[in-house]
């Protein structure tokens, strides 16, 4: 359906969607008695204005991209893996766990970090498998299963931080005791972004791109996503494919959690997922599940998040405005897609 319409019509409708989203966000700002142009300028300067700012954008980009990558797999399989947030959180918990167990051992820090990543991936997969099990054998819609598991993941985090993993003598919302610096992902000098997390993010999306666009697995997964029954009748083992989709998404979400622990916070904090799971769902919807656009659009969203911090400093505006813009963009794109399909059908 999308492929058959002309490229130019698509372009015009996408452009309209962006204009619509910007107009809506501007309207919100005008209502808040703020100058939209100044706000946009501040967001741009605050995200791309210096190499430090841009490196902070990358820090947000990597886990967001990993979450998006995972979600592309479940979306392709026709699954709404809303439990991705909890899967990120469990990844972070497993990574923290591995580091806590190994931090005083004689293993080299590099090896401990690698084990941390693997544990994170395992944690994400474990959490996803619960949702998968409920969905596939229990008939529980993955949206409800995922939501439930998200709550459990949050509760587990809080319990760990204020309970068994609390700092000596005190429980603190600032999280567990930070790991020693040898266990931090090494960063570029003076910046917060680690080349290793960049590598993981880029390899991650590349793997997903190839998997979904260039393999039989991807093709069959698409078939499962489009019409599960037809796919089954054509001989595709749909159960296995759904399991694979959930586990892959969990793996990527777990890696995102591991990056948050190893490369960003260096400890477990209460909201360790930073909402990247939900944001990743927006990104995936916005790009209409095409992996090629995950990287730039995730970058754009990350830049909005980082750049919007300028708003309260400079303009006394709340920085949740970036969320308004992100939400408006997704809604506008979906809306315009609907409008386009209606119009084209009429012709």
């Amino acid at each position: 359906m999308v492929r058959t319409s002309s490229r130019w019509t698509n372009f015009v409708f996408q452009l309209l969607a962006i204009v619509l989203a910007l107009a809506f966000t501007s309207l919100v700002m005008v209502l808040a008695k703020a100058n939209p142009l100044e706000a946009y300028r501040n967001i741009v300067v605050g995200s791309l204005g210096s190499i430090n700012k841009f490196s902070d954008v990358l820090v947000a980009w990597v886990p967001l991209l990993l979450a998006t990558s995972g979600l592309l797999v479940t979306y392709t399989a026709g699954l709404w893996n809303i439990g991705v947030e909890g899967q990120i959180t469990l990844g972070a918990i497993f990574t923290t766990w591995a580091l806590r167990v190994l931090q005083d051992s004689t293993l080299s820090p590099g090896l401990i970090i690698v084990i941390g990543f693997l544990s994170g991936a395992l944690g994400g997969m474990l959490w996803a498998s619960v949702v998968a099990f409920l969905r596939i054998y229990g008939g529980v819609n993955e949206i409800f299963g995922g939501l439930g598991m998200n709550f459990v993941a949050t509760a587990l985090t809080i319990w760990l931080i204020f309970g068994p993993w609390k700092r000596p003598g005190i429980g603190s919302m600032s999280g567990t005791e930070p790991f020693k610096e040898t266990l931090w992902l090494p960063t570029f000098a003076g910046l917060r972004i680690s080349p290793w997390s960049l590598v993981i993010g880029i390899i991650g999306i590349a793997v997903i791109y190839i998997l979904l666009q260039g393999t039989y697995f991807g093709l069959k997964l698409k078939a499962v996503g489009r019409n599960r029954r037809a796919a089954f009748l054509l001989g595709i083992p749909t159960t296995q494919y759904m399991w694979a989709a959930f586990l892959l998404c969990g793996l990527f979400a777990g890696l995102a959690g591991a990056v948050q622990v190893l490369g960003v916070y260096h400890r477990l904090i209460p909201s360790i997922s930073s909402g990247y799971g939900f944001l990743g769902m927006l990104v995936a919807m916005l790009i209409n599940y095409q992996p090629a656009w995950a990287a730039p659009v995730a970058m754009f969203f990350a830049a909005l998040n980082i750049g919007s911090i300028q708003l309260p400093i400079v303009m006394k505006l709340d920085s949740t405005l970036s969320g308004v813009l992100q939400g408006a963009l997704v809604l506008a794109v979906l809306l315009m897609d609907g409008v386009r399909q209606r119009l084209l059908r009429r012709r």
Binding site: G46, N52, D56, V59, A60, M173, G175, R192, V264, Y265, I269, P270, S271, I272, S273, S274, G275, Y276, N305, I309, Q310, P312, I313, S319
Partner: peptide
Amino acid sequence: IYIDKVNSADRPGTTPEQLAED
């Protein structure tokens, strides 16, 4: 100049040191 609501629940994905740099 100031930033308020500096906590990981209100400003996900940020750290105090990063906001201080802002």
